[in-house]
Nucleic acid binder design. Structure first.
Lengths: 144, 144
DNA sequence: GCATTATAATTGACGAGTCAACGATTGATT
DNA sequence: AATCAATCGTTGACTCGTCAATTATAATGC
């Protein structure tokens, strides 16, 4: 019994819906946008990054990166300076204030994850992870 | 072996990524936005709907519904008129032109689905559907 | 019957991403 | 060395969604 096109389309709509809810709720919970949280997290993890690297880590448009960093800089969570070795690049670093904020968020984040995934069994979570990963890689192939 | 918070967060980011790719590519392929496609589809399916009903079918904000319908109306894919029994409501109907567009899209849509899900086995697809559905229902609970 | 409350739709202001155009810097070719 | 191409970042214009305020209509209570 094959899955109908209708059902496939339904999967897209559910994905959309999940994204909206999660994004909104994460921000409400932690006080920071999911994307900006992720930027800070990557910076903490990797030390410092050029905006290009950040763009590839996050898989969003450069323009969006620029704008997020502008906000994070105004909030003093991040410092930017040109790369002396290559003046085209801007190197981004997380500040102490930025690290503090990340720590702060983590409590809320953890509770958030619990609410979100609490009703999944380990087995289901693993499955979900695998399938979503596959789904993502298919979606990325569409680029063209 | 428990799944880490890091991995859970990763799932959100993948969802985001999938949504962006799918939405963009669907539109490029079919020439119509996924949401507006869905509006037309619902109208075809249910005959006619009030904007409120549409809002609940699509699970998006009323404001967004109003704006999409304004566009669809300008494109003559849809007709709107006040409900005589309740002048607060606006009743929306799909036009012949709207139906034609839907038909047109379907070919592209089907090819699109193929590209997207072609590499999934029946089994995987079913699993994906079930897990995403569960995920969605958890996400919707967050509302509060 | 009139005031209050609830429901529908619209509008404006916002946030997040996209794309396309632009500027500045670097690298390559000749 | 001078031009031409490629890379990185910024900006403006756009889409799609959210929320909050507003308007218009209907329903309810006294």
């Amino acid at each position: 019994m094959q899955m109908s096109l209708q059902e496939m389309k339904q999967i897209f709509l559910m994905i959309k819906n999940i994204d909206r809810h999660v994004t909104q709720y994460f921000e409400k919970r932690t006080g920071i946008s999911l994307t900006r949280y992720e930027i800070l997290y990557k910076l903490l993890e990797k030390g410092q990054l050029s905006q290009m690297k950040l763009r590839h880590e996050l898989k969003i448009d450069q323009a969006a990166v620029t704008r997020h960093l502008k906000i994070l800089e105004e909030e003093t969570y991040v410092i930017r300076h040109r790369n002396e070795q290559n003046n085209r690049e801007v190197i981004v670093q997380i500040t102490e204030a930025g690290k503090d904020i990340l720590d702060n968020c983590d409590l809320d984040k953890n509770r958030f994850m619990d609410e979100m995934f609490g009703s999944f069994t380990e087995q289901e979570l693993k499955q979900l992870q695998i399938l979503v990963k596959k789904f993502e890689s298919e979606a990325e192939k569409l680029k063209s």
